[in-house]
């Protein structure tokens, strides 16, 4: 598929509104109460099993809400091979649920058949750009649709890169013709961890390819001489990230935005309140541009 064909297919049925990541503790309540949430995102791997109660629940939820599938285990940047079985499962899932968006991370997680099951950083090299562009093209061709990739948070940097992080992300998106899932929290976390201006990062991204935004909370590690933020998805979105999100919306325009919370998961109301905050930012932008 050419980049032009992929872009032509990208007209997304996902509303430019604030959805939430649907996690196991909230599934039964969502089924019972059908809260006013514009869309949900689920981790693809949680639905990889052939059966189980989650499929039954998700089929009912999918009937009433737009859905985004977000992968954490494809390991696009592994230098040895793409896991063909993992990709096959993803294809089956996409065919079954017809999600509005399908995404993964710009990272690696496994090599030689061993998996860290974490999102590991890549060097910002030409070799890594070429590998990712090739892999993403393979995934898009296999899925027959646009695929989104997400910038990750990192706690180390490799020397000898050919790109800055923001140019690396932009170049991968440009070469592969994929969409971008811009995690604003990850940009902020990395700006603190590696010492750069997050606005420079934001304004270097290809805004015509941004299909989704992620927001989440981080934690601070205090045992080091310099600040270090860990992307734990365990707290409310930080005030500095809300500011950066407002700047992102001003630059990208209204984009489907997701509240992620994966550890110490609170009551659904907390997530709904975070989503309402994101809606206020989207509404404020629309009011200014009306």
């Amino acid at each position: 598929m050419s980049n032009e064909e992929i872009i032509a297919m990208s007209a997304s049925p996902m509303p430019a509104a604030a959805g939430i990541g649907l996690r196991a503790p909230h599934v039964s309540r969502v089924l019972r109460e059908r809260p006013r949430v514009p869309w949900f995102e689920v981790h693809s791997e949680n639905l990889f099993a052939a059966g189980g109660s989650l499929h039954g629940a998700m089929e009912r939820i999918r009937a009433d809400y737009p859905l985004s599938l977000h992968g954490v285990g494809l390991s696009l940047g592994s230098a040895d091979a793409l896991d063909s079985l993992h990709l096959k499962r993803l294809v089956e899932l996409v065919e079954r649920y017809q999600p509005a968006l399908v995404s993964e991370h710009l990272c690696w997680g496994a090599v030689g058949g061993r998996h860290s099951n974490d999102l590991l950083p890549l060097p910002f090299t030409e070799e890594a750009v070429a590998l990712l562009a090739s892999r993403i093209s393979q995934v898009q061709d296999t899925l027959g649709r646009e695929f989104l990739v997400e910038n990750i948070s990192t706690y180390l940097r490799f020397q000898d890169g050919d790109y800055t992080e923001w140019d690396f992300v932009a170049e991968v998106v440009r070469r592969s013709g994929c969409g971008l899932l811009c995690d604003v929290n990850n940009i902020y976390v990395n700006s603190v961890n590696h010492g750069f201006d997050p606005r420079t990062y934001l304004h270097s991204l290809p805004r015509d390819r941004v299909r989704e935004i992620h927001l989440a909370g981080f934690t601070r590690k205090d045992e080091f001489a310099v600040p270090l933020l860990i992307d734990t998805h365990s707290r409310p979105v930080d005030a500095a990230v809300w500011d950066l999100y407002a700047e992102a919306i001003a630059y990208f325009g209204p984009v489907p935005t997701l509240i992620e919370w994966d550890q110490d998961i609170p009551e659904l109301e907390v997530l709904l309140a975070e989503a309402a905050h994101a809606e206020e930012v989207l509404d404020a932008y629309r009011a200014c541009t009306a």
């Binding site: 230098a79 040895d80 496994a110 090599v111 860290s116 060097p123 490799f158």
Partner: peptide
Amino acid sequence: TAPALLDLQRCFLDALY
């Protein structure tokens, strides 16, 4: 000289395990 990506990843994963 920077190692090739595959060597770098093998070395990285060894340290994680």
